[in-house]
């Protein structure tokens, strides 16, 4: 693939829930190794947008191209994309009936057909990177929220994805656990991963984002570098949003 080809292309993407227009003409490119933070008030469509990228939601109009493959009803194209795109959810979504290690090895073994021993070695590698190798044989219910979310990150990384999507990864965490998850994400960003991250953590956005995208009522209102966005917001909607966010801090 050509070096310049963007990792993700969203071209005039539209989506409706019944009569509600939740995504309006979303057009956005994410370059290889680019780190994009998407923010906006709740109900702004940011989660829906990120979930369209690996088709947990279907868009109804426009084009989405991920890693050179267009998302259509073609199941094989979808499988290809999902293998290359990792996702981390707000509610962790670890599999409670499997151990931490099994959570991490399941997809490499069944989807990538990796031998079990190799998958376990890989999983332990990533569990060490997120700093919880000693929990490998426990069940998710025995871990704290922060630990579970780090496992979820490790689980996604075990598929060796080219792109990582984060859907409000720290919103369900107690304050003292947010840092450990953000630290993990920062070191992932430093390793050169392409990342799209829906989050309200402005400190994280400042530290790692190449670009911040602000969404409201289903459309992209403004985007730019974190410094420009936070210090010189152009639109009233972003100004209002920032003032509300900062008041909370």
């Amino acid at each position: 693939m050509a070096e310049a080809a963007p990792a993700i292309v969203l071209d005039k993407v539209n989506k409706w829930y019944g009569a509600m227009h939740v995504l309006r003409d979303i057009t956005m490119n994410v370059d290889q190794k680019e780190r994009v933070v998407v923010c906006g008030p709740s109900g702004s469509g940011k989660s829906t947008m990120i979930r369209c990228i690996n088709r947990l939601e279907q868009h109804q109009q426009g084009r989405i191209v991920v890693d050179g493959t267009e998302l259509t009803d073609d199941v094989r194209a979808l499988d290809t994309i999902r293998r290359e795109v990792g996702m981390v959810f707000q509610s962790f979504n670890l599999f409670p009936h499997l151990t931490i290690l099994q959570n991490c090895t399941l997809a490499p073994i069944s989807v990538r057909k990796m031998p079990k021993a190799e998958a376990e070695e890989l999983a332990m590698d990533f569990l060490r990177k997120v700093k919880i190798p000693e929990q490998a044989n426990k069940y998710p219910g025995q871990l704290s929220g922060g630990q579970q979310q780090r496992v979820a990150i490790a689980r996604a990384l075990c598929m060796k994805p080219k792109i990582m999507l984060f859907d409000e990864p720290t919103s369900a965490l107690d304050p003292e656990m947010i840092k450990e998850v953000l630290d993990t994400m920062v070191s992932l960003a430093e390793s050169g991963m392409t990342m799209v991250c829906v989050t309200h953590e402005m400190g994280f956005a400042r530290m790692v984002a190449d670009r911040v995208v602000f969404m409201d009522r289903g459309e992209i209102v403004e985007s730019g570098t974190p410094t420009r966005m936070f210090e010189d917001p152009q639109t009233d909607r972003l100004k209002l949003f920032l003032s509300q966010i900062l008041r909370g801090h």
């Binding site: 999902r82 990792g86 979504n93 989807v111």
Partner: peptide, 18 residues
């Protein structure tokens, strides 16, 4: 079952039967 379980499996690229 919480919807997230199926979504997480989908996001990992598991097939329907897996």
């Amino acid at each position: 079952l919480p919807k997230g379980q199926a979504e997480a499996a989908d996001a990992l690229g598991l097939t329907y039967w897996q």
